[in-house]
Design a protein around this nucleic acid. Structure first.
Length: 459
RNA sequence: GGGCCGUUAGCUCAGUCUGGCAGAGCACCUGCCUUUUAAGCAGGGUGUCACUGGUUCGAAUCCAGUACGGCUCACCA
């Protein structure tokens, strides 16, 4: 409203007969000069200068203004527009009213609010003082809208599936556990939406997506947050190649719509989101990254021997797939700056992905990397219930072995698959990480309005 | 969970090394000022120096513990 008013005043020469206008907003700056005052009020759309004179609001009114109105208060003013000496469109106030009083002051006007803890705990103050913070969250919201629009236009149906689940699954992570009193049973906060969305594919909803929070019981870092927003998309009669095309088009379209450009600047990099994105197989990527051809080293022992021969400094993992992943994360991932699909993953770290044709060790899976950040995960969905059972059994053995992130056996999911699932492409990516890239924020906590903090004793 | 650093006025920060009356700017309060915009001028300090204990004649300052936070490593997407 304030911005619209300012625009309205721009075209015309403000005059004495200017119409009476009303505006409301928060007082964000005040300059008192005796019997006249300049101030700025701000609402969600912008800010406008107001000008109060004792001879226009009356002696009593002006005395009240000086005595009771402070920075931070919400006021309503009525008056007409004019231009000051410096050309700023300003509302000359004929009457004002207190809409809401602020008892605590705003953050310091020049330095603003920089204390990171206060910025997160009292995000409302951060939003008031830091325009770029506000902008980040506006962009985040618009990105989500653009994603919805993109998918809706292509016939996808947005759905909602359970957050509280009797068996968690769809990802490799430790879950949060909670308890249902009436049913007297433990439930898990979901670590992904995957298995429920695929049940909908089985049920004939051929194109579905869900945007929601997943919960993973892990540490926090600049890239991780225990509660994060993920979108998952499933399309029947498609495979992972189709999902790559969908991904690059969606990310590019969202950037164009929200930022007006297909290129984003992130830290020191200019990232070009224009399709098609680079595609590289896991095998080639690791070969280029550290000189080991993982296809030639068919088990974990052989792989470790190669690592030792080459003197590579890398953590040792329990199985072949995890060791491959470790090599990739150490020697390849940090260098993947421009958007890249890394394709064809080891089967033993992909219990829900379909095997590549005539391959025993590889699945049709890709992950999305931008600016060294893992942004998403997708595959041709495993739709063979017999194969699925074997995968779960193997995962369950690891779980029993002490790997807390292994996938638990899920009989109900196998039962669903036994009723038949069409070939399907599935995709998931993090909205938070996407927002980090699109708003140039290096920490995930800067794209989450109220990030997790240790609870503080009542003060 | 480990390592390093931090916590002083409502906010942004000095002061801690080398113990000696608790400081500055903004905000706030008082007075002046009818086109200012980090308004200006004159005056005012509003404080559990995170908390608990110790050393000392004396602790914001030195020591120990606790809480919370930041960075980072580990874990993870």
């Amino acid at each position: 409203m304030a911005k619209a008013l300012q625009k309205a005043g721009e075209g015309e020469t403000p005059s004495a007969e200017a119409p009476l206008l009303s505006v409301a907003g928060r007082l964000v700056s005040v300059r008192v000069m005796g019997k006249a005052t300049f101030a700025h009020i701000r609402d969600g759309t912008g800010q406008i200068q107001i000008y109060l004179r004792q001879d226009e609001v009356g002696e009593a009114g002006y005395r009240q203004w000086l005595a009771y109105y402070d920075l931070g208060d919400f006021v309503g003013v009525q008056g007409s527009l004019f231009r000051t000496r410096t050309g700023e469109v300003t509302l000359r106030v004929s009457s004002l009213v207190m809409l809401a009083k602020a008892l605590r002051p705003l953050p310091e006007k020049w330095h603003g609010l920089t204390d990171v803890e206060l910025r997160y705990r009292q995000r409302y103050l951060d939003l008031i003082s830091n325009a770029e913070v506000r902008n980040t969250f506006v962009i985040r919201s618009r990105l989500v809208s653009a994603i919805r629009r993109f998918l809706d236009e292509r016939g996808f149906l947005e759905v909602e599936t359970p957050v509280l689940q009797p068996i968690y699954g769809g990802a490799a992570a430790r879950p949060f556990v909670t308890h249902h009193n009436e049913l007297d049973s433990d439930l898990y906060l979901r670590i992904s939406d995957e298995l429920y969305l695929k049940r909908l594919i089985i049920g004939g909803l051929d194109r579905v997506y869900e945007i929601g929070h997943d919960f993973r019981n892990e540490g926090v870092s600049t890239r991780h947050h225990p509660e994060f927003t993920q979108i998952e998309v499933y399309q029947a009669y498609a495979d992972y190649n189709e999902m790559m095309r969908l991904t690059e088009e969606l990310w590019h379209s969202a950037a164009k719509q929200v930022l007006g450009t297909g290129q984003v600047t992130y830290q020191d990099h200019t990232i070009d989101l224009t399709p098609p994105w680079a595609r590289v197989t896991m095998r080639d990527a690791v070969l280029q990254g550290c000189g080991i051809d993982i296809a030639q080293e068919s088990d974990v022992a052989a792989l470790r021997q190669r690592i030792e021969e080459r003197g590579l400094k890398v953590e040792l993992k329990a199985n072949w797939g995890k060791q491959v992943e470790e090599l990739f994360e150490t020697f390849v991932q940090p260098g993947l700056i421009q958007p890249t699909f890394v394709m064809d993953y080891p089967l033993d770290i992909s219990p829900l992905a379909k095997k590549k044709p005539n391959e025993e060790k590889w699945v049709e899976r890709f992950e999305i990397f931008v600016a060294g950040l893992e942004c998403g995960n997708a595959f041709s969905e495993l739709n063979d219930p017999l194969d699925q059972r074997q995968r779960f059994e193997s995962q369950n053995a690891q779980l029993v072995d002490g790997d807390e992130e292994a996938h638990p056996m899920d009989e109900d999911w196998i039962r669903a698959l036994e009723h038949g699932m069409p070939p399907t492409g599935g995709l998931g990516f993090g909205i938070d990480r996407m927002t980090m890239l699109y708003t140039n924020n290096p920490s995930i906590r800067d794209v989450i309005l109220f990030p997790a903090l240790r609870s503080k004793a009542q003060r």
